[in-house]
């Protein structure tokens, strides 16, 4: 067999990187939805909604992502078997689900904090103008809170990108998995892991640039860089 050079690694690593990108994008999107649902749920007046949100946030922040992943992939099917439902998830689904649930729990605290940081004066002005609580949330509070969420969301998205490496442990062929396969085959650890490092870093840069753009879009009403 011919000697492989770093150029030969790229197509294999590229395939893995594409899986990583997809995992990141989907789990960040679903995670953001969960973050808003649970973050606003925690502020809801309805005690059941509040309790459910708190339970979700605490469970998924308080346990390790790896265990959540294994539980969804390995344990859930057995639970399903016991009650006669097929709960076997394809690795991609289990991976995206675990990542979303995990990042959503952290994001929920960001959403809650940003909404609570909107000043009392704003809520009072909204009340004086007779906005309903729902209108106040969606028209007054959230538009001011969302720009505040962007820097922590950027952090979470990058955290999420890096966490996707864990899904290789449930046999998903992401960037980390491909790197491991190549390394087993060629033993060229230095080159492979340097490339992988650079690829993760590149993806993180793109992600941050995207979040910057999003941030200036949702905050275009704000005074120039404070």
């Amino acid at each position: 067999m011919d000697e492989m050079t770093w150029l030969d690694y790229l197509p294999v690593l590229g395939q893995g990187a594409w899986v990583t990108v997809q995992l990141t994008v989907w789990s960040t999107l679903f995670g953001a939805l969960l973050a808003f649902a649970a973050g606003l749920g925690k502020l809801a007046r309805n005690a059941a909604v509040r309790g459910l949100s708190v339970a979700y946030i605490e469970i998924f922040r308080g346990t390790s992502l790896l265990v959540q992943l294994f539980w969804l992939y390995f344990a859930l099917p057995l639970v399903g078997q016991a009650i006669g439902i097929n709960l076997r998830l394809p690795p991609v689904t289990a991976g995206i689900l675990a990542l979303s649930l995990n990042i959503g729990a952290y994001g929920a605290e960001v959403v809650r904090g940003a909404v609570q940081a909107v000043t009392r004066q704003q809520y009072e002005a909204a009340r004086a103008l007779n906005f309903t609580p729902r209108q106040t949330l969606f028209r007054i509070a959230l538009p001011q809170a969302i720009p505040e969420m962007m820097p922590p969301f950027d952090n979470l998205a990058i955290q999420n990108l890096k966490d996707t490496a864990l899904v290789s442990l449930i046999s998903l062929a992401d960037l980390a998995m491909r790197a491991e396969q190549l390394r087993n085959y060629t033993q060229d650890s230095t080159t492979i892991y340097t490339l992988v490092l650079l690829m993760y870093f590149g993806m993180a840069l793109v992600l941050t640039a995207f979040m910057r753009g999003l941030s200036s879009m949702v905050g275009r009403w704000r005074p120039a860089q404070r």
């Binding site: 004066q121 704003q122 103008l129 007779n130 209108q135 028209r139």
Partner: peptide
């Protein structure tokens, strides 16, 4: 609906233009 209030610290909505600040409640409420 019978009352209106002007606050010490103005409390305008910072994410809305002046016009939106004034039209938002008449439209929505």
């Amino acid at each position: 609906g019978k009352l209106g209030m002007v606050f010490q610290s103005f409390n305008l909505f910072p994410h809305m233009t002046v016009l939106r600040n004034i039209t938002e409640a008449p439209v929505q409420v």
